[in-house]
Design a protein around this nucleic acid. Structure first.
Lengths: 219, 219
DNA sequence: CCACAAACAGTCAAGCCTGTCTTTTTCTCC
DNA sequence: GGAGAAAAAGACAGGCTTGACTGTTTGTGG
């Protein structure tokens, strides 16, 4: 640890980390602003204020950059989620939790993730990278939602209702990308909160007759 | 009607229509298979079996092609919806309706629409075209869902529940693009069918206390 | 049958994107 | 301080995409 030099007080390992972070940050921003098709390496390097040469030094190919950006973005989403939970405090009404989730799924960070998500569908290599991260984060989010909503997953159907809630906010987030949905979304969430509350702590959602129609291919 | 010529039995107006249709069809297919970023005019013309010259004759710019494809795709979605409703027949259990909707929002036609949807977010011109069509189709789908579910929209909250259902299947459709969700989706839908039934025809979803938390910015 | 226009075919240039390469600067260790 | 490596900068080539442009075929009306 006895560092001899006094001219450079910043070890360049630190600077390297910072430059990589700037590039990843810029990549996410560009993704959110211009979409996947508009995210060229040139634009990202310009946005990051990094020369193209330096960029290609740290990320030899675009794939390397994107893969790292996926990881970075996942971390960002995790952090955002934690922050939002902390901001919730203790007044965790169902409505407040739902609004929090919906806010998360309407912000620029989700938007960037959405772009990657959709792009990954047609790109095998990208999908291999995105899918695992999304699975992990999805599980974490689910766990957190269960906790925040005070749901008892041992009851039949409760787990599915929480999943449905998360898929709903995903759908709402998607709908919000075209045009401003805020008012409509708020109404839907309010109603969903009522229904969810009733379904969660009232009856165990009619344990009898799990599948009324027998025409189902999947097991 | 007294057509004098006997050599050409197909008026080229018909052929023009057919060629345009082939191009639009190909555009939608490519959109679903390769995504927005992979949809180049060259690929579309090849896919349609149409020379690039002919393509540029019918659609002078890529924008012209895409705009027409949006319209075409909307029509296709409408047709698919009608067909699915017809296939449902009279046995319209809530579960069956939900499965039908989810199938629609998991198929290639929806996928193509999803690509356009997401691409439109970062492209002002495209958004201006996509948004109105989506609004119209959205309203039609909502109306149809209300009818199929036998929902009484005069009751408070019912409208929002139907909207939530559609947003939910949108979210499920999005989730299905990465990896195969079929089993999970089926479970979620089954549970939601139960909950929705209970919420729709049981109580009017607690008409008192519409918003338990007063900390709401939006009106 | 001819003239004219629409439909069709394909080439070409300009621009962008990616990734390789060379050169220059900066850091680090001896 | 100097040698060597890592980092940074930027030029360059190859490929792809778009749309303009020219030439060719086909259909239609006189």
């Amino acid at each position: 640890m006895t560092v001899t030099q006094r001219t450079n007080r910043v070890p360049q390992e630190e600077r390297t980390r910072a430059m990589r972070a700037r590039l990843l940050e810029a990549c996410v921003e560009v993704l959110a602003e211009r979409g996947w098709a508009g995210t060229s390496t040139t634009v990202v390097s310009q946005r990051a204020g990094v020369s193209r040469g330096a960029q290609l030094h740290h990320f030899p190919s675009k794939s390397d950059l994107v893969v790292a950006a996926v990881e970075h973005l996942t971390q960002a989403r995790r952090a955002e989620l934690s922050a939002a939970v902390a901001a919730l405090g203790e007044g965790r009404s169902t409505g407040a939790v739902l609004r929090m989730l919906a806010d998360l799924f309407t912000g620029p960070v989700f938007t960037a993730a959405l772009e990657l998500w959709v792009a990954a569908r047609a790109d095998d290599a990208l999908r291999e990278v995105v899918a695992p991260f999304e699975r992990h984060l999805g599980r974490e989010t689910h766990k957190l939602a269960v906790e925040l909503l005070g749901a008892d997953e041992s009851r039949p159907g409760v787990r599915e209702l929480v999943q449905a809630t998360l898929d709903l906010v995903r759908g709402l987030g998607l709908a919000a990308t075209l045009g401003d949905d805020t008012a409509r979304r708020a109404r839907i969430l309010d109603q969903w909160a009522l229904t969810l509350d009733a379904a969660l702590d009232a009856a165990p959602a009619t344990p009898a007759a799990p599948a009324p129609t027998p025409d189902l291919q999947e097991s």
